[in-house]
Design a binder for these strands. Structure first.
Length: 432
DNA sequence: TTTGAGCGC
């Protein structure tokens, strides 16, 4: 019998598909750093199952997921009036580990011919809406499926969602998406994989940009109106025209003035064609004119500029939030003599103590517990490893990552569930 | 060639 052709998939690194640099003057692929992360969203035993065929029902999902762990409940989300499936469902487990195992084993398994896309349930839509950490890949070989794409990218960080676009017959369209939890992971994946060969095809890997935005970006590069700021106060329309006319035919050049006719030190120059405008920006931005360093760029509409600023602000906010996740420590079993200053001193060897707090009763005496906020989760982890169990004033210190209030509540729910279980257990034994 | 969709009682 003839040997079957071997699969053209080389497992060259961390379970991913073989990735090689292109033949000529391309950078070598450094060893992929780990940091995969199990993706167990702490305390979350609920899975979101998406990309479902409309025919998939609760029973099929229950049968499928029960093979991995005990399923508490399944819900297919449906249109309220027509009762038709919205193409996604929730599968709930007893504990996060069961959910993680089910996700690991069943992600991308086809159900009624369509691969399920499984994620931890995440009700907060801010990450989904932001486009933060979202990566686009094109020029993928047709042999690369969801799983292969996942394995290749999971070496850079926690992958929340991943998909190869397919046509109606299930064939790869040659492009796909990877949504990382962390923007840093997206950046390192882009840096390492863009232009690399995956199964002999040179792939493009870049930040995902919404179709609409791409059109806008294209419009950005084609413009005739130029904005100039930091002009000397004495500059006239005439002088502005003279400064810009060597780059092409100008249809108007004005310096903006206030009610008294005094220059606001900025203006607009409109060219007849976009090439002239681009050349003017290229040559005159940062140009020193009568001791003033000019800013020259594409003139933006007010709404456009505001949108850009808002976007930037949102991104920064998310980055900050991400950095502070896990940077706050909860400490207990503190001796009553330990105050904020002493606590700060104890934790400063591990990084910057952004804030610290001792919990006190109404008489201002220590409750023996408190919080220490460091400036990153890395610092907090280091401090936890070094300080947990360490003797301070004769008492072993307890250190843990501080939990958010909503997560603490979920622990209460777990405890009530356990109590209920033991109650039922005792009851059933009494009966027999 | 190719730039998604998306979170409950």
């Amino acid at each position: 019998m003839a040997a079957t052709a071997p699969l053209q998939v080389q497992h060259s690194f961390a379970g991913g598909v073989g990735v090689t640099p292109p033949p000529s003057p391309a950078p070598a692929l450094p060893a992929a750093s780990g940091g995969g992360g199990g993706g167990v969203s702490f305390g979350n035993a609920s899975l979101y199952v998406g990309d479902l065929d409309a025919a998939v029902d609760e029973g099929q999902l229950y049968d499928m997921f029960s093979q991995v762990a005990q399923v508490i409940s399944v819900r297919v989300c449906r249109d309220q009036t027509r009762r038709s499936s919205l193409g996604y469902a929730y599968v709930n487990f007893i504990n996060p580990q069961d959910a993680a195992n089910a996700k690991e084993l069943l992600n991308f398994t086809p159900l009624v011919g369509k691969p399920m896309r499984i994620m931890f349930s995440h009700r907060d839509p801010s990450l989904r809406k932001s486009g933060y950490g979202n990566v686009f890949i094109k020029n993928l070989d047709s042999s690369i499926d969801n799983k292969a794409l996942y394995d290749t990218f999971a070496t850079f960080g926690t992958v929340l969602s991943c998909k190869v676009a397919i046509d109606s017959s299930g064939q790869s369209r040659g492009y796909g998406f990877v949504q990382f939890e962390q923007e840093e992971a997206a950046e390192s994946a882009i840096k390492r994989l863009d232009g690399m060969l995956i199964n002999d095809k040179k792939v493009f890997v870049g930040h995902f940009v919404r179709q609409q935005e791409r059109k806008k970006d294209n419009a950005h590069t084609i413009f005739t109106n130029v904005y100039v700021k930091n002009l000397p106060e004495s500059t006239t329309d005439q002088e502005l025209n003279e400064l810009f006319e060597k780059y092409g035919t100008i249809t108007s050049a004005i310096v903006v003035k206030d009610a008294n006719g005094k220059s606001k030190c900025f203006g607009f120059v409109n060219f007849e064609n976009p090439d002239s405008a681009a050349a003017a920006v290229e040559k005159l931005n940062d140009f020193t004119f009568s001791d003033k360093v000019l800013y020259v760029g594409k003139a933006q509409k007010k709404a456009e500029r505001e949108a850009e600023l808002r976007n930037k602000f949102e991104q920064e906010k998310l980055k900050k939030y991400e950095k502070l996740q896990g940077a706050n420590l909860y400490v207990k079993n503190l001796d009553d003599s330990i105050n904020e200053d002493k606590l700060k001193e104890t934790f400063s060897p591990f990084g910057t103590v952004a804030s610290c707090k001792i919990m006190r009763d109404q008489h201002e005496s220590s409750k023996g517990a408190g919080f220490v906020a460091l400036s990153s989760s890395e610092e907090a982890k280091k401090a936890l490893n070094e300080m947990n169990g360490k003797m301070i004033e004769g008492k072993p210190l307890y250190v843990a990552i501080a939990q958010r209030k909503d997560q603490r509540r979920s622990w209460l729910q777990v405890i009530s569930l356990l109590l209920l279980c033991s109650f039922l257990y005792v009851l059933s034994h009494k009966q027999s």
